[in-house]
Amino acid sequence: MLLNRTIDSYHFGSAVDLAESQLRPLTGLFHHSASSGVSILGGRTAVIPAQMDGIGSVVIKHYRRGGLLRYFIKRRYLKLGKTRAQREFELLDTVGKFGINVPQPIAFAYCGRLFYRAWLITREIHQPVSLASLSLQDEKKTGRAMASVITQISSLIQNQILHVDLHPGNVVADTAGTVYLLDFDRGKVYHGTRQQLKNRYRTRWQRAVNKHGLPKILTEMMQNGLK
């Protein structure tokens, strides 16, 4: 069950009870310029690091539009039911219970009624390196990371969960070598067959690897692992 709290014009949701003293400092960061990094795959991130009392290091994800609409409405969305931040928060919580390594969701927030802006707060992953970058540096570590990726994707398939944009830029390893799957925005329960879902994962992965000229080990291990 989600716990809700409103602070000024910001509406928060979380799975555990968070005090106003923990959440209010975050509101001062919501409209700061987020650090934007361009990965090897060209994907953009928009996050702000922060500290939360009793939680520790977290990151605040800003939701930004893609496609042509981003030139007209960059960060606002029409509110029809749950916000994007709430949907991703709930999906991260769900897949985490399946044993899949994802950023631990702490809270989500939004402001606005008809049109809204939204933010997702997750626990920070320590010094993450994307699988795309790792594949260009260390083949042995890449092989170990891919074995973990395949296990986790297999679990997503078994549980009928579609990550709509899973590619080597949305997979990271921390300093301990733990592999995480990122960016479940727009992810959902898949209503086709598991074979169809498996094919979607393989096709999206291979397209990204080929397009960006990444090492073939990424495709070969994926094809062999998801038979």
Rank of each mutant, 00 (worst) to 15 (best):
Y180E: 03
T27H: 00
E20K: 10
V164N: 08
R64V: 13
S154T: 14
M52I: 15
V149N: 11
L23Y: 04
N159F: 06
V58M: 04
A19D: 13
Y110E: 02
K141W: 06
V47Y: 02
K188F: 04
R204D: 08
P103S: 05
A176D: 15
L114H: 02
L68G: 01
A145R: 09
L131F: 07
Y201T: 05
L226W: 10
P25C: 05
D174C: 09
G37V: 12
H191D: 13
G56W: 12
G56S: 12
I73H: 08
S154K: 15
A109S: 11
K216R: 14
L26V: 05
W119Y: 15
L2G: 02
L114M: 06
I150G: 05
L114F: 09
T94L: 15
A208Q: 08
G169I: 09
T219F: 00
G187N: 03
Y77M: 03
S154W: 02
Q104D: 11
R207P: 05
A19E: 14
F12R: 01
E90L: 15
W119T: 00
S33E: 14
P215Q: 06
R75L: 00
R144L: 15
L91C: 04
A118D: 04
F184G: 01
Y190T: 03
M146G: 10
L92A: 02
D93I: 00
